[in-house]
Amino acid sequence: MTINELERIASQVRRDIIRMVHGCQSGHPGGSLGATDIVTALYFDQMQIDPANFRMDGNGEDMFFLSNGHISPMFYSILARRGYFPVSELATFRRLGTRLQGHPTTAEGLPGVRIASGSLGQGLSVAVGAAQAKRLNGDKHLVFVLMGDGEQEEGQIWEAAMYAPAKGVDNLIAIVDYNKKQIDGSTDDVLNLGDLRAKYEAFGWNVLEMSGNNMQAVVNTLKFARENAFQGKPQLILAHTEMGMGVDFMMGTHKWHGSAPNDEQAANALSQLQETLGDY
């Protein structure tokens, strides 16, 4: 897929995010908007997947796990736009009886979701387990996981970070959505993450960095990581992103981490995002 096509999809995904969060007056738009380009590139270009025949076991295809489950609007939009379930279902986000729960779950059987996330810190471990399962099965596909940067404060992350290199789990590509913001403020103020790159490298990971809102850079980096899999080490991509990317008044602040726009704000946001695939 061309960069321009991917960017057009990302624009529609951002519209979906705003409309979903506005529709139910809850949810997490900031991180969703920031991570859109990365996950769009994964699902529409880089991952080998079969959306029409979703298999929970993920055998014979690449697998993706969203560890920071609160950015579910982005995840749901991309799954729907990629064909896992009808786009019209996005309108049910966070409403009683929906398959699109506030945080992703498997309980309602939404195609594309393989495990619940929301309580932070668990996704990297799940991905390591899934990657080891692929090794046992002789399945030469990859496992991807997206984590938040605030999530790096969870101790369990570092249990998994220690395990994966120690056991040579090299079919795993982990991505940190490094927007440097979390609910209470900047990560520097809340709990300084220090030198994340040096930390992961010290744990034994191959670390890449990319501009996470530049589609060309995202595609290039993911492609590079794919080509460098199966060489004895897990890989970590520090994705420098902007929370709220695409909507001017949501950028440069942590205030839109978990709050919904009102009618006027939503209209303003949508005026900045081109409708490319048709709204749901």
Partner: peptide, 19 residues
């Protein structure tokens, strides 16, 4: 190793694939 949280979630990840 002494990392029970990681163990439980790795087991869940592996169970996905039919183990």
């Amino acid at each position: 190793g002494i990392a029970e949280a990681n163990m439980i979630n790795m087991a869940a990840g592996m169970a996905l694939s039919g183990f």
